[in-house]
């Protein structure tokens, strides 16, 4: 019930900022999901610092400082030093110095507040409304970076709420994000397997499952492309998804190809989307030599190549 998009610049983002590129691509396929829009944005790593984003309930009365104070306190308790902080829309964004276990920090923070993302290079921005609505609130177009993912959602199974929007962060693992179009039918089986190994899930959304599944493999030292390869066998259902890490972007597509995906690649960038109309938004007036990934395939692109 959605449209997905991803872009990776081989050098610096040129014609459009990474944020602007994703806004354009998502605006092109907003018909696939009018309810909410989200972005996973990657900027070059700032060594040792973690960027955290939280939802702050806009309904909460008086000063939201109460909620923010609680987050601050929790971070300090866990041994983090706060370097920078800011309110952005309904988000609280904080940069910390932290050298402990990220998974422990993630779970502790999840218990204390609504975490949107944690990463050294990743930040997720997502909210209800269109790509332009979200941009108006969070100034996504000003985001310069290296790569990113985007998602438009038509809400069916859960409510139209910012926290039910996509992309999803791989809870507990820094810098892994996913956008997914489709439905994983062996969700509970896969989730229970991961839960038995101590992983926590903050939603019942199947996209979060794919993110954690892949992040777990990566943490074990498996290459992203090999994790994508096994995902096609392990995940049951219809899916076209994009995944990104601090320096890679990749896709996987199920064998039935029930969910569309199309890609374009040149010397400057790689762009993948649900529909060609999104790719064309990066190149107005130009007929593109696009390629449709075959059913049951995957691929990755790396910044280092």
């Amino acid at each position: 019930m959605c449209g997905i998009a991803g872009v990776m610049y081989r050098g610096s983002d040129k014609a459009f900022s990474t944020g602007e590129a994703l806004i354009r691509m998502l605006d092109g396929c907003q018909h696939r999901g009018p309810d909410s829009t989200g972005f996973a944005l990657y900027a070059p790593e700032t060594s040792g610092r973690l960027k955290l984003r939280f939802f702050i309930d806009p309904e909460s009365d008086a000063d939201d400082d109460v909620a923010i104070d609680a987050i601050r306190q929790r971070l300090v308790d866990l041994g983090a030093a706060i370097e920078e902080e800011a309110r952005a829309g309904d988000n609280y964004r904080v940069t910390i110095l932290y050298d402990g276990d990220v998974q422990k920090l993630s779970y502790e923070m999840e218990h204390a507040a609504k975490v949107i993302s944690i990463g050294t290079s990743l930040e997720i921005v997502k909210d209800v409304g269109s790509a332009h609505d979200v941009d108006d609130r969070y100034h996504v177009n000003q985001f310069h970076g290296t790569h990113g993912l985007g998602h438009v959602r038509l809400a069916t199974e859960s409510d139209v709420k910012p926290e039910a929007s996509h992309p999803f962060w791989a809870t507990g693992f820094a810098d892994v994000a996913i956008v997914h179009n489709g439905q994983i039918t062996n969700y509970w089986k896969m989730r229970r397997r991961l839960e038995q190994r101590g992983f926590e899930f903050t939603t019942d959304n199947d996209s979060e499952l794919i993110a954690v599944y892949l992040a777990d493999k990566l943490a074990q030292g498996v290459k992203l492309q090999d994790a994508l390869s096994t995902s096609i066998d392990d995940l049951d259902g219809t899916f076209s998804f994009l995944v990104s890490t601090g320096d890679e972007i990749g896709y996987a597509k199920d064998r039935l190809a029930a969910k569309p995906m199309i890609m374009y690649e040149d010397d400057d960038l790689v762009a993948i989307a649900s529909e060609e109309v999104s790719l064309n938004r990066l190149f107005p007036g130009k007929a593109l030599n696009t390629r449709e990934p075959a059913p049951g395939t995957y691929a990755t692109w790396s910044r280092s190549i």
């Binding site: 529909e275 060609e276 109309v277 064309n280 107005p284 007036g285 007929a287 593109l288």
Partner: peptide, 25 residues
């Protein structure tokens, strides 16, 4: 400038030539 937009030419019932210069959705 079709730029891969959807529904180009839908519902046309006349014997004319239509040249789409680019990609259609």
């Amino acid at each position: 400038n079709p730029d891969a937009r959807h529904h180009i030419g839908v519902g046309l019932t006349a014997p004319i030539n239509v040249n789409v210069q680019g990609s259609a959705g």
